[in-house]
């Protein structure tokens, strides 16, 4: 097949990508550099919209806080979701007969919309009617019956843990596939040489899982930075209570659609651009590091 035929086959997808992804992205990017009066574009504003994000209320307080929450979301998800995910995948790997069924079971919650998940957990954790606190009180753990979503100290972690609960099937599947790709001969050879189970995992299996761990980490990073639906379902667009479940995407949503500010399009586009640069930059840097690492192992 020559290049032109190749081009012919690529064109439809490319056109769709261009119209529905690239074009809106580039326009949003350009919007960030203009003055706006409602939907009417004014003159070129340079970096004014960007400096507003760092100098003007409410951004001066909301943006750093939202960013911190995104980072905590990433760290929390990495620590909890991906370690539990790897453990579960490892345990499932050895259960040949029930593996499929259990994998499906673990993946079940992510078939449900995050909005529904958030709403259901809000009901479960409600301090007035919620069964969770009723149950805790009944079994004598009254001091544990906290206002889970009403206290800034617990609200963010509830969001993170529910997200972990919803998405746990994802690392289980990816690690499961990666474990399936580790040649049995290598572990066997290690065991013949007298390595214990723990040693085999640490010295043989784990290093071969590094590419998968890398992929999962990058995807988790993107996922955590874009977090929107679940926090929105839990705390609304303002990150209730008192901004303790605020995220950058929520701040964007508030700025663009809730504030009613006349320059909303400019500042929100600037924020979107910033978020894109952050995600793209982070993901690109992480991938570059991982590639180098992979080359070292395969070399």
């Amino acid at each position: 097949m020559n290049r032109r035929t190749g081009l012919l086959f690529v064109t439809p997808a490319l056109a769709l990508f261009g119209v529905f992804v690239l074009y809106p992205m580039v326009t949003a990017f350009s919007y960030a550099f203009y003055d706006w009066q409602g939907t009417a574009r004014g003159g070129f504003a340079g970096l004014e919209n960007f400096t507003a994000l760092f100098t003007r209320a409410p951004f001066t307080t909301d943006l750093p806080r939202a960013l911190l929450h995104n980072v905590l979301f990433f760290v929390g998800t990495m620590l909890v979701q991906n370690t539990i995910g790897l453990t579960v995948a490892f345990l499932l790997h050895r259960r040949v007969r029930t593996r499929r069924a259990l994998q499906t079971l673990y993946a079940m919650p992510y078939l449900v919309s995050p909005i529904v998940i958030g709403y259901l957990w809000t009901l479960l954790l409600s301090p007035t009617f919620g069964p969770v606190n009723t149950l805790l009180t009944k079994v004598g753990l009254e001091s544990w019956a906290l206002p889970w979503l009403g206290d800034p100290d617990t609200a963010l972690w509830v969001v993170i843990l529910v997200s972990v609960w919803q998405w746990i099937g994802f690392p289980v599947l990816l690690y499961g596939a990666a474990l399936g790709g580790v040649p049995e001969e290598l572990s066997e050879a290690a065991r013949v040489d007298g390595a214990s189970h723990a040693q085999t995992f640490r010295r043989v299996t784990f290093p071969l899982l590094v590419p998968a761990i890398g992929t999962v980490s990058v995807l988790t990073f993107i996922f955590a930075m874009e977090a929107f639906a679940l926090p929105y379902a839990f705390g609304g667009s303002t990150g209730n209570p008192a901004g303790s479940t605020d995220f950058i995407s929520l701040l964007f949503y508030r700025t663009a659609f809730d504030s009613g500010a006349t320059d909303a399009i400019g500042t929100s586009s600037a924020l979107a651009t910033l978020l894109f640069v952050l995600i793209f930059g982070g993901a690109y840097a992480a991938t570059a590091v991982l590639r180098r690492h992979e080359r070292r192992i395969t070399a």
Binding site: T122, L125, S126, P127, T128, F129, L146, P147, W148, L149, G150, D151, N240, P241, A242
Partner: peptide, 15 residues
């Protein structure tokens, strides 16, 4: 209601 910051407005209406 107790822990009022954890009570959603829909819960308040239901109360």
């Amino acid at each position: 209601p107790k822990s009022v910051t954890g009570v959603a407005v829909t819960d308040a209406m239901t109360l």
